[in-house]
Design a protein around this nucleic acid. Structure first.
Lengths: 256, 256
DNA sequence: CCAAAAGTGTTGTTTTTACACCCATGA
DNA sequence: TCATGGGTGTAAAAACAACACTTTTGG
């Protein structure tokens, strides 16, 4: 570029520089003490995939990610955060994808569109498990929740994207409204603690956890107990969203 | 997309979905107690710009960013970190850019290439100030260091990109080898402290700072003093890179 | 009645903060 | 010699880590 004129450079820019953009979403949920992730199984493909899509000219990446999740998984109203761009030159799997598409009746030249180079922006999404009715789109066989540690292998570099999302989630636990978005409106402290333990991958001391959470002043105590469960009935809480967001501005203090 | 066949979708994907990728680099340096940023002044444009470029088909974004910095600013061997993707639909300034290009002799149709929609990946770079000999490329008039708080207005959304980079740098101070990449090999503790203060935008207590930095065990004491300065000669240190990197894995502990 | 989970406080240890004096150097 | 910045320690306060018994409930 140094010794070349701008005109010359513009001649070849479209051919040398073009890359397409895609996005992939790691949708986290929490149920029964387990951190879950929403994965698609594509027709004629054994491995699972993250829900992903493309950006239209008229929308931002964030808007595209929201639209993608609505269209491909039936999920609405998600908390979304971009976390990394994946731009390895050989991300795609030209050996498999066009074949699969041809099998479901796409012409070879159309199928080859998918084998182009895509640079993908990774998003993680936090959704309340019980609000989701997974609904696969026409490209996918199934759309289901998987335990993080019981998923099968994923296509392309989706394993890496998922791992990166999890690390990001761990590191942002004190800076994003993680509890608010993953738990139902009313929840118990042991549930909140199990969520933290699931994300961090380690056990926490019950009393220290409660003291610390209370010290943030982000919980509203509800004078209700969870009924119908075995053993002693735990109290219910909900987040005080105003205070939660104010507390997050400076980051919740201290380590886990 | 829900009610459309894959074939139909592929028909219109290139026209509705295409977006180009660019990248912009916020190059930080540190000199005379000030955090600096490297900015370009373009021909026929009063405002300043971040050095930016495009990705070739054969390289990752990180490789493209390294190449861009070498070509446009003469900077080699930088520490780079992607931090955010900027995908506002109206990032570009179609009113100004094509005009400017026409003024420097580019034909209108070529000039319009720059007015397309670009989604830009932001990188921040950390370089040792004294290693940089800014060298503007053929698109730029000047390439110089500016104090963070004394820069003029920037083109496009580059002000926002710069702000975001600074916030990211602040939040990653305990997780990236910031001191190692911004300071010369040998440095004094007061210099390191001024770097932290410049990044965080606040004063730190001298004794507490030293105790904490020492507690990380990442410094190697050099049995040398800085000579030729007024006042008492401070000791020189350098980073023990092995220990620094090991300490960064878990994040340096504690707040500033 | 018993097994299993939930509620609750205290203590010792570590970390953080705040703060003041002497020393070396170049001007 | 003096003005300026660099080196150094201590004490009080806050945060953290470790730990055990009692209560409630469904089975």
């Amino acid at each position: 570029m140094q010794d070349e004129s701008l005109e010359d450079w513009l001649e070849r820019v479209d051919q040398d520089y073009l890359a397409h953009i895609s996005l992939d979403c790691v949708v986290f949920g929490f149920h029964a003490g387990q951190l879950k992730v929403l994965l698609l199984k594509m027709k004629h493909e054994d491995r699972l995939a993250l829900p992903g899509g493309f950006v239209m000219k008229t929308e931002t990446l964030e808007e595209a990610a929201i639209r993608t999740l609505r269209e491909r998984t039936g999920v609405e109203n998600v908390f979304l955060q971009q976390f990394c761009v994946f731009s390895e030159v050989l991300r795609s799997d030209p050996a498999t994808r066009p074949d699969d598409l041809r099998r479901i009746g796409i012409s070879p030249e159309k199928a080859s569109w998918f084998a182009q180079r895509f640079i993908s922006v990774g998003f993680y999404a936090l959704v309340e498990f019980s609000c989701v009715v997974p609904r696969p789109d026409w490209l996918s066989d199934t759309c289901d929740w998987y335990n993080l540690d019981e998923r099968g292998p994923l296509i392309l570099d989706h394993d890496r994207i998922l791992e990166t999302a999890l690390h990001t989630l761990q590191s942002q636990l004190n800076h994003q409204p993680v509890g608010y978005n993953l738990l139902p409106r009313k929840f118990t402290l042991p549930e909140l603690q199990k969520l933290y333990e699931a994300i961090l991958g380690k056990k926490l001391d019950r009393r220290n956890f409660q003291r610390k959470i209370f010290s943030f002043g982000i919980l509203r105590s509800l004078d209700e107990k969870r009924t119908g469960v075995a053993h002693k009935a735990p109290y219910l809480y909900s987040f005080d969203l105003r205070k939660y967001q104010k507390a997050l501005k400076g980051g919740l203090q201290g380590g886990w």
